[in-house]
Each structure stands twice: as structure tokens, then as C-alpha cells.
Design a protein around this nucleic acid. Structure first.
Lengths: 214, 214
DNA sequence: GTAGCTCTGTAACATTTATCACGGACTCCC
DNA sequence: GGGAGTCCGTGATAAATGTTACAGAGCTAC
């Protein structure tokens, strides 16, 4: 797929200077992936750093027994700090990255990341902003896990999903939610039912509607 | 307190080039703090980035109700990524940093951090290595909190403390441990007693001895 | 020594979360 | 229409953690 300089201009015009946009167009690898596409698995080698143009990607942490916990979402123009840190010395991934909807992105080859940091101050800014945002995201994840009960975390997760996709209806199973919160399907079912009784959500098969977001 | 160039040479000689060591000596602010000294509180403004020469610093996350959770320890030659991210655009701290023992450190003024990244490639390396280590630390913290039970986390905490200070006897109260694990004193007492019955620790007032570390 | 303090042990109970078990509902496909 | 598969609801029970309450142990100051 061709990466048009106009598209880049439009997306990154007020963030990057013209010469960087040029380079982006030359070496960046444009990709479109469908919902559920696995961009990265733990242990995978990272050969490029993704920058999202549209869509969203969820980042999960897995333990040794196959359980997973949602860390955060990447959204428009976000990039992944894990891949930044990892690729700078050819390390393996420690996380899982899965497209949460149809997502368009540019993959930047590893070697450019470092080069551009000294070359383009706007790129340096972007890299540090990325680190900072991911740190905040991770701290947010820790807040949720350490300080909140499951029902609050579940509601929080639904709210974040809502913010991410801009809608209030999700096609998702209780099983999947359970995985993202590192708990079981039954627990999620129970809590959802409880939330439904409280008028916070409306449930049907494969579908959850978030009623009053606050 | 004066910062001797020889000391820097000895500590950072194989990491930084001579001219950077020079600058470090000129602008770096040498400090010695005692155990318990609070280096940073949430909401505090960050005017310098610390690099540890010796000792250790614990980094905690607090929630709005005053509970805290241990994130990780900084040890020899570590630096704090939070302060890196924060100071690069004058943000407030999101964490608490407390000296866990007598600690010597150099404080680098904010404005140099950015400047040196383009100027010294070794400094750039150092900054990125710092980010990477802190990311790993945070992921480790999430693993602990999300995937392990309290007794395992408690034992893990004691083991980490042991690694950090190089000893197996800690002068610490159950209350403090409870804070670091974001739980109550009673729970810690129970679990410690249980660990003592299992022969993993030996308890006395203000003192916990770790028996078989594994 | 003894009053006051901090720290620890522990019982009793409540709440939260996990696990097991099973049945019903819905969907797809033949 | 009837299996087969997936998804959901829910009771029963267990395990883990949180909370309340209180007693005693050790230290310090006087």
C-alpha cells in the first residue's frame, strides 16, 4: 500500500517538519490491519515502531499461566513506547498488542528512530511525549489494579472503551472482558448483571450497552 | 558539598565521556540524604533529575485515599524516569520517592537533560536505558499486583529488599510493609506469621529475618 | 517501677473474588 | 427441526482479603 505524502501532511503536518515528513513517506511502511490482528506477542522481536493513524490497539500484559491484564489503549497518533525501548537495543517484546478495531498505521524501521532523535527536534519531542504518555498509562493501570474493586474496574474499562471507539455499544463477550481484567467469565457476568440492575448498562448476547457514562 | 571529578570518574568513567563528566561536575548538585528522606511527593514540581551514586530509593504510587503501592526501587547509578518525563515539560510528579537507606546522589538541572541528549550520545543512551529499565520495573510491579496473591507478593517484597540492601534482616514494621503492598497491618501480621510457621522468616519486634531466599 | 507509647498477635466477622457445576438461550449449519 | 457450538445466568461453595476489636509484649521516659 502506498503512503501518500498528502496523508502524512494532513495527519502530522503540525507535529513534524517537512523534511521529516519526506523521510517518513520514504521509509515508513503503511499498514492496515483488521480488528483482532495480533501486532505483537511476548518474545517477538521488534523490527519497527508503529505510529497509529486511525483505529486503536490494546496493549496487554500476560503472565506465565496465560492470564492477561489490559495495560492501556493506543489511539490516534499514538506510538508504542515498549517498541521504542525494545528496538533501541534489539530486545524482545514483553507485551501483547492487538488491534481493537480496524487500524491504520505506519511502521518505522528501527534504525531511523535513533537517527531521527538527534536529527529532528520534533521527532525527539514526539519520542519523549510517547514515553511520558505510556508512563501515565501504566500508572493508570496500576491505580486501577491496585486500588479499585473489580466492579469499578469493569465500569472503568467500559468507559475507556467507549472513549476509544466513540460509541456506547460494544460487541464483546464476557469472556473477553474477563481476560482483559485478568479474571473469570463468571465474575464478569455477575458484575455486569449487577451493573444492569443498577441501570448502568444494558445487556444482550455479544453486546453491552453503556447507559450513563460518568 | 563538593562533587569531586575523581568520584565521578570512578562512578561513571566507563559510561560517560570526559567532557560530559566535566559538565556533570560543574552543574550537578551532590546530595546526601538519610533513610526516610522524602525526595518527591505527588504534585511536587521537578526541578532536577537525580542519579543515584549509592544507596537506594523506593518509588511509590499513592491513590486519592492515602493508600500507597510500591512500584520499584532505584539502586546504584539508576535514575528516575518519572522525573525525566516530567521535567521535560515542567510537569508535576505523579509518584512518591523516599530514600530507603542513606543515599548519595547527583541532581542534574532540568535544562541540561534535554541539551545533553543531542550533545552526548552516551547521555542519550543513558536516558533511554533509564526509560527502558523503569518500564520493566513498572511491568514487574503490574505482574506482582495483578497475578500474585498477597503472600507471594510479601515474600517477593522481602526478597527484593534483601537484594537491594544486601542483607537478610530488616528493621521494618508490619505497618510499613502493609503500606508498600497497599493493605492493612493485620493482614501482613497474619501472612508473616504464616511464613514464620513455614520456616521462611523469623520475626521479632521491628525486625524480620529472611531465612531461605529462593 | 510504672505510665504511656508503639508494635505485634489473633479471634471473629464481613466482603470480595475465585471456582465448580449446570441449565438455558441463542446461532449456525445441515 | 434438531444437533453442535458458543455465550450467558446463577446457585453453591471455597478461598483470599479487609475490618473491627481487643489483649499483651516490649520499649522509653520519668
Amino acid at each position: 500500500m502506498k503512503l501518500e505524502i498528502e496523508v502524512l501532511q494532513q495527519q502530522f503536518g503540525n507535529m513534524f517538519e517537512a523534511s521529516l515528513l519526506q523521510e517518513l513517506a520514504q521509509v515508513g511502511n503503511y499498514m492496515e490491519v483488521e480488528e483482532g490482528f495480533v501486532l505483537m506477542r511476548p518474545g517477538g522481536y521488534i523490527r519497527s515502531v508503529p505510529i497509529l493513524i486511525s483505529g486503536s490497539v490494546k496493549i496487554l500484559r500476560a503472565d506465565s499461566e496465560g492470564r492477561e491484564a489490559l495495560l492501556y489503549y493506543l489511539g490516534g497518533l499514538d506510538s508504542c513506547a515498549m517498541s521504542l525501548t525494545c528496538c533501541l537495543d534489539r530486545r524482545q517484546s514483553e507485551i501483547t498488542a492487538i488491534a481493537d478495531e480496524k487500524t491504520r498505521l505506519i511502521a518505522i524501521p528501527v534504525e531511523k528512530i535513533d537517527e531521527w532523535i538527534t536529527k529532528y527536534s520534533s521527532w525527539k519531542q514526539f519520542v519523549f511525549m510517547t514515553y511520558q504518555k505510556r508512563f501515565e498509562d501504566l500508572l493508570g493501570a496500576i491505580d486501577q489494579i491496585a486500588f479499585h474493586k473489580l466492579d469499578e474496574r469493569l465500569l472503568g474499562l467500559l468507559n475507556r472503551k467507549s472513549k476509544q471507539c466513540g460509541c456506547t455499544i460494544f460487541n464483546i463477550t464476557h469472556e473477553e472482558l474477563g481476560q482483559e481484567l485478568a479474571t473469570s467469565r463468571e465474575v464478569i457476568s455477575r458484575l455486569l448483571k449487577q451493573l444492569e440492575r443498577l441501570g448502568r448498562v444494558k445487556l444482550s448476547r455479544n453486546k453491552i450497552e453503556l447507559l450513563d457514562k460518568n
